[in-house]
Design a protein around this nucleic acid. Structure first.
Lengths: 200, 200
DNA sequence: GTCTATATGATGATAGAC
DNA sequence: GTCTATCATCATATAGAC
Protein backbone atom coordinates (compact mmCIF):
# COMPACT_ATOMS: atom_id res chain seq x y z
CA UNK A 1 0.00 0.00 0.00
CA UNK A 2 1.48 3.28 -1.08
CA UNK A 3 2.04 6.05 1.38
CA UNK A 4 -0.24 9.05 1.14
CA UNK A 5 1.76 11.42 -1.01
CA UNK A 6 0.80 15.04 -1.66
CA UNK A 7 -0.96 15.23 -4.98
CA UNK A 8 -0.45 17.47 -8.00
CA UNK A 9 2.57 19.44 -8.95
CA UNK A 10 5.42 19.45 -6.55
CA UNK A 11 6.85 22.94 -6.49
CA UNK A 12 10.62 23.13 -6.42
CA UNK A 13 10.37 26.53 -4.91
CA UNK A 14 7.59 28.04 -6.87
CA UNK A 15 7.57 31.21 -4.90
CA UNK A 16 9.78 32.19 -7.81
CA UNK A 17 6.90 32.64 -10.20
CA UNK A 18 4.88 34.79 -7.87
CA UNK A 19 7.95 36.75 -6.89
CA UNK A 20 8.47 37.55 -10.55
CA UNK A 21 4.84 38.59 -10.85
CA UNK A 22 5.06 40.84 -7.81
CA UNK A 23 8.29 42.44 -8.99
CA UNK A 24 6.84 42.95 -12.45
CA UNK A 25 3.70 44.62 -11.13
CA UNK A 26 5.77 46.90 -8.93
CA UNK A 27 8.10 48.01 -11.69
CA UNK A 28 5.47 48.26 -14.41
CA UNK A 29 3.54 50.63 -12.18
CA UNK A 30 6.56 52.60 -11.03
CA UNK A 31 8.46 52.86 -14.26
CA UNK A 32 6.18 51.89 -17.12
CA UNK A 33 6.17 49.10 -19.65
CA UNK A 34 8.76 50.08 -22.21
CA UNK A 35 11.33 51.43 -19.81
CA UNK A 36 11.42 48.35 -17.60
CA UNK A 37 13.85 45.68 -18.69
CA UNK A 38 13.32 42.03 -17.90
CA UNK A 39 16.71 42.18 -16.26
CA UNK A 40 15.49 44.85 -13.88
CA UNK A 41 12.47 42.74 -13.01
CA UNK A 42 14.69 39.76 -12.40
CA UNK A 43 16.92 41.86 -10.17
CA UNK A 44 13.94 43.17 -8.22
CA UNK A 45 12.63 39.63 -7.78
CA UNK A 46 16.12 38.37 -7.00
CA UNK A 47 15.97 35.63 -9.59
CA UNK A 48 17.93 34.83 -12.71
CA UNK A 49 16.79 36.71 -15.83
CA UNK A 50 16.42 33.48 -17.77
CA UNK A 51 13.80 32.26 -15.34
CA UNK A 52 11.40 34.88 -16.57
CA UNK A 53 11.45 33.23 -19.95
CA UNK A 54 11.01 29.90 -18.32
CA UNK A 55 7.74 30.97 -16.70
CA UNK A 56 6.43 33.44 -19.26
CA UNK A 57 6.34 33.65 -23.03
CA UNK A 58 7.76 37.11 -23.36
CA UNK A 59 7.54 40.58 -21.92
CA UNK A 60 4.00 41.19 -23.16
CA UNK A 61 2.87 37.89 -21.66
CA UNK A 62 4.41 38.81 -18.34
CA UNK A 63 2.65 42.16 -18.42
CA UNK A 64 -0.64 40.44 -19.08
CA UNK A 65 -0.23 37.97 -16.26
CA UNK A 66 1.10 40.53 -13.81
CA UNK A 67 -1.24 43.45 -14.35
CA UNK A 68 -4.18 42.58 -16.60
CA UNK A 69 -5.08 39.18 -15.26
CA UNK A 70 -7.09 40.09 -12.22
CA UNK A 71 -10.19 41.95 -13.37
CA UNK A 72 -9.71 45.34 -11.75
CA UNK A 73 -13.25 45.30 -10.55
CA UNK A 74 -16.53 43.76 -11.47
CA UNK A 75 -18.03 46.37 -13.74
CA UNK A 76 -21.65 45.46 -13.16
CA UNK A 77 -21.30 45.69 -9.43
CA UNK A 78 -19.67 49.06 -9.85
CA UNK A 79 -22.50 50.34 -12.01
CA UNK A 80 -25.05 48.98 -9.56
CA UNK A 81 -23.36 50.67 -6.67
CA UNK A 82 -23.16 53.99 -8.49
CA UNK A 83 -26.82 53.90 -9.52
CA UNK A 84 -28.11 52.78 -6.14
CA UNK A 85 -29.26 55.92 -4.33
CA UNK A 86 -30.54 59.42 -4.86
CA UNK A 87 -29.54 61.08 -8.12
CA UNK A 88 -28.08 64.13 -6.41
CA UNK A 89 -25.42 61.96 -4.81
CA UNK A 90 -24.38 60.01 -7.88
CA UNK A 91 -21.16 61.99 -8.17
CA UNK A 92 -20.26 61.29 -4.57
CA UNK A 93 -21.01 57.58 -4.90
CA UNK A 94 -18.93 57.40 -8.06
CA UNK A 95 -15.93 59.07 -6.51
CA UNK A 96 -16.22 56.97 -3.38
CA UNK A 97 -16.50 53.75 -5.36
CA UNK A 98 -13.26 54.44 -7.17
CA UNK A 99 -11.36 55.52 -4.09
CA UNK A 100 -12.52 52.34 -2.38
CA UNK A 101 -11.48 50.23 -5.35
CA UNK A 102 -8.03 51.77 -5.22
CA UNK A 103 -7.70 50.84 -1.58
CA UNK A 104 -7.67 47.12 -2.17
CA UNK A 105 -4.09 45.88 -2.12
CA UNK A 106 -2.44 45.79 -5.52
CA UNK A 107 -5.34 47.47 -7.27
CA UNK A 108 -3.69 50.85 -7.32
CA UNK A 109 -0.46 49.46 -8.77
CA UNK A 110 -2.39 47.64 -11.45
CA UNK A 111 -4.33 50.75 -12.33
CA UNK A 112 -1.17 52.84 -12.50
CA UNK A 113 0.59 50.24 -14.61
CA UNK A 114 -2.34 50.17 -17.02
CA UNK A 115 -2.42 53.94 -17.23
CA UNK A 116 1.30 54.13 -17.92
CA UNK A 117 0.95 51.38 -20.50
CA UNK A 118 -1.93 53.23 -22.13
CA UNK A 119 0.41 56.13 -22.70
CA UNK A 120 3.43 54.17 -23.88
CA UNK A 121 2.74 50.58 -24.88
CA UNK A 122 1.67 50.21 -28.49
CA UNK A 123 -1.84 48.88 -28.87
CA UNK A 124 -2.53 49.37 -25.19
CA UNK A 125 -4.50 52.60 -25.53
CA UNK A 126 -7.77 50.91 -25.08
CA UNK A 127 -8.04 48.33 -22.33
CA UNK A 128 -8.38 50.69 -19.41
CA UNK A 129 -10.14 53.70 -20.87
CA UNK A 130 -12.45 51.75 -23.13
CA UNK A 131 -13.39 49.38 -20.39
CA UNK A 132 -14.25 52.19 -18.03
CA UNK A 133 -16.06 54.13 -20.70
CA UNK A 134 -18.07 51.30 -22.18
CA UNK A 135 -18.76 49.05 -19.22
CA UNK A 136 -19.20 51.62 -16.50
CA UNK A 137 -19.77 55.24 -17.36
CA UNK A 138 -21.76 54.91 -20.56
CA UNK A 139 -24.22 52.72 -18.71
CA UNK A 140 -24.51 55.20 -15.88
CA UNK A 141 -25.04 58.10 -18.27
CA UNK A 142 -27.60 56.13 -20.24
CA UNK A 143 -29.43 55.24 -17.07
CA UNK A 144 -29.92 58.95 -16.59
CA UNK A 145 -31.38 59.23 -20.07
CA UNK A 146 -28.62 61.17 -21.74
CA UNK A 147 -28.42 61.02 -25.51
CA UNK A 148 -24.76 62.03 -25.48
CA UNK A 149 -23.84 59.25 -23.09
CA UNK A 150 -20.58 58.48 -24.85
CA UNK A 151 -19.22 61.99 -24.58
CA UNK A 152 -20.30 62.14 -20.97
CA UNK A 153 -18.70 58.78 -20.27
CA UNK A 154 -15.41 59.78 -21.82
CA UNK A 155 -15.35 62.97 -19.82
CA UNK A 156 -15.92 60.91 -16.69
CA UNK A 157 -13.12 58.56 -17.69
CA UNK A 158 -10.79 61.47 -18.06
CA UNK A 159 -11.62 62.68 -14.56
CA UNK A 160 -10.66 59.32 -13.09
CA UNK A 161 -7.54 59.03 -15.18
CA UNK A 162 -6.57 62.60 -14.36
CA UNK A 163 -6.69 61.99 -10.65
CA UNK A 164 -4.72 58.78 -11.01
CA UNK A 165 -2.24 60.51 -13.30
CA UNK A 166 -1.79 63.47 -10.98
CA UNK A 167 -1.47 61.42 -7.86
CA UNK A 168 0.39 58.27 -8.87
CA UNK A 169 2.27 59.16 -12.01
CA UNK A 170 3.08 62.85 -11.74
CA UNK A 171 2.94 62.60 -7.97
CA UNK A 172 1.54 66.04 -7.39
CA UNK A 173 2.13 66.41 -3.65
CA UNK A 174 -1.13 68.12 -2.69
CA UNK A 175 -3.13 65.38 -4.37
CA UNK A 176 -1.23 62.68 -2.55
CA UNK A 177 -1.58 64.39 0.81
CA UNK A 178 -5.21 65.42 0.60
CA UNK A 179 -7.76 63.73 2.82
CA UNK A 180 -10.00 61.17 1.22
CA UNK A 181 -13.10 63.21 1.95
CA UNK A 182 -11.65 66.19 0.18
CA UNK A 183 -10.85 64.15 -2.92
CA UNK A 184 -14.36 62.72 -2.90
CA UNK A 185 -15.75 66.23 -2.78
CA UNK A 186 -13.46 67.40 -5.54
CA UNK A 187 -14.09 64.52 -7.94
CA UNK A 188 -17.79 64.29 -7.27
CA UNK A 189 -18.41 67.74 -8.74
CA UNK A 190 -17.44 66.97 -12.32
CA UNK A 191 -18.80 63.44 -12.00
CA UNK A 192 -22.22 64.70 -11.01
CA UNK A 193 -22.17 67.18 -13.87
CA UNK A 194 -20.99 64.70 -16.48
CA UNK A 195 -23.09 61.71 -15.53
CA UNK A 196 -26.32 63.21 -14.22
CA UNK A 197 -26.97 66.92 -14.71
CA UNK A 198 -28.22 68.58 -17.85
CA UNK A 199 -25.73 70.81 -19.61
CA UNK A 200 -26.17 74.46 -18.89
CA UNK B 1 32.36 101.68 -50.21
CA UNK B 2 31.39 98.05 -49.60
CA UNK B 3 28.30 96.63 -51.21
CA UNK B 4 25.38 95.94 -48.93
CA UNK B 5 25.81 92.27 -48.17
CA UNK B 6 23.32 90.20 -46.22
CA UNK B 7 24.56 90.00 -42.68
CA UNK B 8 25.00 87.10 -40.31
CA UNK B 9 25.27 83.42 -41.03
CA UNK B 10 24.82 82.26 -44.57
CA UNK B 11 22.76 79.08 -44.44
CA UNK B 12 23.87 76.28 -46.73
CA UNK B 13 20.42 74.84 -46.72
CA UNK B 14 19.41 75.31 -43.20
CA UNK B 15 15.93 74.10 -43.73
CA UNK B 16 17.56 70.92 -42.49
CA UNK B 17 17.69 72.07 -38.91
CA UNK B 18 14.09 73.17 -38.83
CA UNK B 19 13.01 70.03 -40.64
CA UNK B 20 14.63 68.02 -37.89
CA UNK B 21 12.88 70.13 -35.28
CA UNK B 22 9.52 69.69 -36.95
CA UNK B 23 9.95 65.95 -37.32
CA UNK B 24 11.09 65.66 -33.70
CA UNK B 25 8.09 67.59 -32.40
CA UNK B 26 5.74 65.46 -34.46
CA UNK B 27 7.18 62.16 -33.29
CA UNK B 28 7.72 63.18 -29.68
CA UNK B 29 4.05 64.10 -29.50
CA UNK B 30 2.81 61.05 -31.38
CA UNK B 31 5.02 58.39 -29.88
CA UNK B 32 6.69 59.77 -26.77
CA UNK B 33 10.25 60.47 -25.80
CA UNK B 34 11.77 57.11 -25.01
CA UNK B 35 10.16 55.18 -27.79
CA UNK B 36 11.27 57.52 -30.55
CA UNK B 37 14.69 56.77 -31.98
CA UNK B 38 16.87 59.44 -33.48
CA UNK B 39 16.93 57.30 -36.60
CA UNK B 40 13.16 57.50 -36.83
CA UNK B 41 13.28 61.26 -36.50
CA UNK B 42 15.91 61.42 -39.22
CA UNK B 43 13.73 59.24 -41.43
CA UNK B 44 10.71 61.46 -40.81
CA UNK B 45 12.74 64.57 -41.60
CA UNK B 46 14.35 62.83 -44.57
CA UNK B 47 17.85 63.64 -43.46
CA UNK B 48 20.85 61.60 -42.49
CA UNK B 49 20.83 60.42 -38.86
CA UNK B 50 24.27 61.86 -38.25
CA UNK B 51 23.00 65.33 -39.02
CA UNK B 52 20.98 65.30 -35.85
CA UNK B 53 24.17 65.09 -33.88
CA UNK B 54 25.64 67.80 -36.01
CA UNK B 55 22.90 70.23 -35.02
CA UNK B 56 22.07 69.02 -31.52
CA UNK B 57 24.03 67.76 -28.56
CA UNK B 58 22.03 64.65 -27.92
CA UNK B 59 18.49 63.38 -27.73
CA UNK B 60 17.63 65.36 -24.62
CA UNK B 61 18.94 68.53 -26.22
CA UNK B 62 16.83 67.92 -29.29
CA UNK B 63 13.78 67.39 -27.12
CA UNK B 64 14.46 70.67 -25.36
CA UNK B 65 14.87 72.61 -28.57
CA UNK B 66 11.94 70.97 -30.30
CA UNK B 67 9.30 70.98 -27.61
CA UNK B 68 10.34 73.01 -24.57
CA UNK B 69 11.93 76.00 -26.21
CA UNK B 70 8.92 78.06 -27.14
CA UNK B 71 7.20 79.03 -23.90
CA UNK B 72 3.84 77.35 -24.27
CA UNK B 73 2.17 80.52 -23.22
CA UNK B 74 2.94 83.56 -21.21
CA UNK B 75 1.78 82.59 -17.77
CA UNK B 76 1.11 86.07 -16.51
CA UNK B 77 -1.06 86.92 -19.46
CA UNK B 78 -2.96 83.72 -18.93
CA UNK B 79 -3.57 84.52 -15.27
CA UNK B 80 -4.62 88.04 -16.19
CA UNK B 81 -7.05 86.80 -18.76
CA UNK B 82 -8.55 84.27 -16.37
CA UNK B 83 -8.98 86.82 -13.59
CA UNK B 84 -10.36 89.55 -15.81
CA UNK B 85 -14.13 89.36 -15.51
CA UNK B 86 -16.94 88.33 -13.20
CA UNK B 87 -16.15 85.56 -10.73
CA UNK B 88 -19.03 83.40 -11.84
CA UNK B 89 -17.46 83.02 -15.26
CA UNK B 90 -13.92 82.22 -14.16
CA UNK B 91 -14.36 78.58 -15.06
CA UNK B 92 -15.55 79.43 -18.54
CA UNK B 93 -12.71 81.89 -19.11
CA UNK B 94 -10.20 79.30 -17.91
CA UNK B 95 -11.49 76.59 -20.21
CA UNK B 96 -11.68 78.99 -23.14
CA UNK B 97 -8.16 80.26 -22.54
CA UNK B 98 -6.74 76.76 -22.73
CA UNK B 99 -8.73 75.74 -25.76
CA UNK B 100 -7.56 78.90 -27.50
CA UNK B 101 -3.97 78.24 -26.51
CA UNK B 102 -4.24 74.76 -27.99
CA UNK B 103 -5.44 76.20 -31.25
CA UNK B 104 -2.22 77.99 -32.09
CA UNK B 105 -0.22 75.87 -34.53
CA UNK B 106 2.21 73.51 -32.87
CA UNK B 107 1.03 74.29 -29.37
CA UNK B 108 -1.05 71.18 -29.11
CA UNK B 109 1.79 68.94 -30.26
CA UNK B 110 4.12 70.55 -27.77
CA UNK B 111 1.64 70.06 -24.97
CA UNK B 112 1.11 66.44 -25.90
CA UNK B 113 4.82 65.80 -26.17
CA UNK B 114 5.35 67.30 -22.72
CA UNK B 115 2.55 65.25 -21.26
CA UNK B 116 3.93 62.04 -22.75
CA UNK B 117 7.39 62.96 -21.54
CA UNK B 118 6.02 63.65 -18.07
CA UNK B 119 4.85 60.06 -17.96
CA UNK B 120 7.96 58.44 -19.42
CA UNK B 121 11.06 60.62 -19.48
CA UNK B 122 13.08 60.46 -16.30
CA UNK B 123 13.21 63.77 -14.49
CA UNK B 124 10.49 65.20 -16.68
CA UNK B 125 7.65 64.79 -14.20
CA UNK B 126 7.69 68.40 -13.30
CA UNK B 127 8.03 70.92 -16.11
CA UNK B 128 4.50 70.85 -17.36
CA UNK B 129 2.44 70.12 -14.28
CA UNK B 130 4.51 72.21 -11.92
CA UNK B 131 4.53 75.13 -14.28
CA UNK B 132 0.79 75.09 -14.67
CA UNK B 133 0.22 74.57 -11.00
CA UNK B 134 2.65 77.17 -9.70
CA UNK B 135 2.55 79.87 -12.32
CA UNK B 136 -1.08 79.75 -13.29
CA UNK B 137 -3.59 77.99 -11.10
CA UNK B 138 -2.12 78.64 -7.68
CA UNK B 139 -2.18 82.34 -8.45
CA UNK B 140 -5.76 82.19 -9.61
CA UNK B 141 -6.84 80.25 -6.53
CA UNK B 142 -4.95 82.64 -4.25
CA UNK B 143 -6.58 85.59 -5.95
CA UNK B 144 -9.86 84.17 -4.77
CA UNK B 145 -8.57 83.97 -1.24
CA UNK B 146 -8.34 80.21 -0.86
CA UNK B 147 -6.06 78.87 1.86
CA UNK B 148 -5.77 75.51 0.13
CA UNK B 149 -4.69 77.09 -3.14
CA UNK B 150 -2.13 74.38 -3.90
CA UNK B 151 -4.59 71.51 -3.69
CA UNK B 152 -7.06 73.49 -5.76
CA UNK B 153 -4.38 74.29 -8.31
CA UNK B 154 -3.32 70.69 -8.64
CA UNK B 155 -6.88 69.60 -9.12
CA UNK B 156 -7.22 72.18 -11.85
CA UNK B 157 -4.03 70.90 -13.44
CA UNK B 158 -5.42 67.42 -13.48
CA UNK B 159 -8.54 68.63 -15.29
CA UNK B 160 -6.43 70.15 -18.04
CA UNK B 161 -4.14 67.14 -18.25
CA UNK B 162 -7.09 64.81 -18.23
CA UNK B 163 -8.69 66.44 -21.21
CA UNK B 164 -5.42 66.51 -23.08
CA UNK B 165 -4.73 62.91 -22.14
CA UNK B 166 -8.15 61.73 -23.17
CA UNK B 167 -8.21 63.61 -26.42
CA UNK B 168 -4.65 63.52 -27.72
CA UNK B 169 -3.02 60.53 -26.08
CA UNK B 170 -5.79 58.00 -25.51
CA UNK B 171 -7.70 59.51 -28.41
CA UNK B 172 -11.12 58.93 -26.96
CA UNK B 173 -13.28 59.52 -30.02
CA UNK B 174 -16.13 61.43 -28.41
CA UNK B 175 -13.71 63.91 -26.89
CA UNK B 176 -12.06 64.51 -30.23
CA UNK B 177 -15.34 64.99 -32.03
CA UNK B 178 -17.13 67.18 -29.50
CA UNK B 179 -17.82 70.81 -30.34
CA UNK B 180 -15.63 73.38 -28.72
CA UNK B 181 -18.56 74.95 -26.88
CA UNK B 182 -19.43 71.64 -25.34
CA UNK B 183 -15.90 71.10 -24.09
CA UNK B 184 -15.83 74.60 -22.64
CA UNK B 185 -19.04 73.84 -20.80
CA UNK B 186 -17.72 70.54 -19.56
CA UNK B 187 -14.36 71.79 -18.34
CA UNK B 188 -15.66 75.01 -16.88
CA UNK B 189 -17.68 73.22 -14.22
CA UNK B 190 -14.83 71.65 -12.30
CA UNK B 191 -12.64 74.69 -12.98
CA UNK B 192 -15.18 77.00 -11.42
CA UNK B 193 -15.48 74.68 -8.43
CA UNK B 194 -11.75 74.22 -7.93
CA UNK B 195 -10.59 77.77 -8.49
CA UNK B 196 -13.44 79.90 -7.19
CA UNK B 197 -16.22 78.24 -5.21
CA UNK B 198 -16.13 77.21 -1.58
CA UNK B 199 -16.11 73.48 -0.93
CA UNK B 200 -19.48 72.09 -0.05
C1' DG C 1 14.01 24.23 -11.78
C1' DT C 2 18.05 26.86 -12.20
C1' DC C 3 21.65 29.23 -14.47
C1' DT C 4 25.66 30.10 -18.06
C1' DA C 5 26.56 31.47 -22.42
C1' DT C 6 25.24 33.52 -26.37
C1' DA C 7 22.48 34.90 -30.70
C1' DT C 8 20.54 38.84 -32.74
C1' DG C 9 19.10 43.26 -33.20
C1' DA C 10 18.32 48.19 -32.07
C1' DT C 11 19.83 52.07 -29.82
C1' DG C 12 22.62 56.63 -28.85
C1' DA C 13 26.82 58.39 -29.98
C1' DT C 14 31.54 59.47 -32.44
C1' DA C 15 35.36 60.01 -35.87
C1' DG C 16 36.47 61.42 -39.96
C1' DA C 17 36.13 61.35 -45.32
C1' DC C 18 34.09 64.20 -48.90
C1' DG D 1 27.05 70.78 -44.44
C1' DT D 2 26.60 66.11 -45.52
C1' DC D 3 27.20 61.32 -45.06
C1' DT D 4 29.75 56.54 -44.36
C1' DA D 5 31.41 53.55 -41.14
C1' DT D 6 31.70 52.04 -36.70
C1' DC D 7 31.65 51.64 -31.47
C1' DA D 8 29.82 50.44 -27.12
C1' DT D 9 25.76 49.36 -24.84
C1' DC D 10 21.69 47.70 -24.02
C1' DA D 11 17.58 45.07 -25.17
C1' DT D 12 14.78 40.48 -25.81
C1' DA D 13 15.17 35.98 -26.50
C1' DT D 14 17.12 31.07 -26.95
C1' DA D 15 19.92 26.67 -26.40
C1' DG D 16 21.50 23.71 -23.50
C1' DA D 17 24.56 22.26 -19.34
C1' DC D 18 23.85 21.12 -14.53
Amino acid sequence: MPTNRPRGRRPGRTETRSEILAAALKLFSEVGYEKVSLRAIAREAEVDPALIHHYFEDKADLFEKAVLDLPLDDAEKLVGRILDGPDEETGVRTATAFLDAWDVPGARDRFTAMLRAAVTKSGEHRPLSEFLSREVFTKVAEAHGHADAKLRAQLAVSVILAYSLGRDVLQLPALAKAKKAQIVTALSVPMQQYLVDAWK
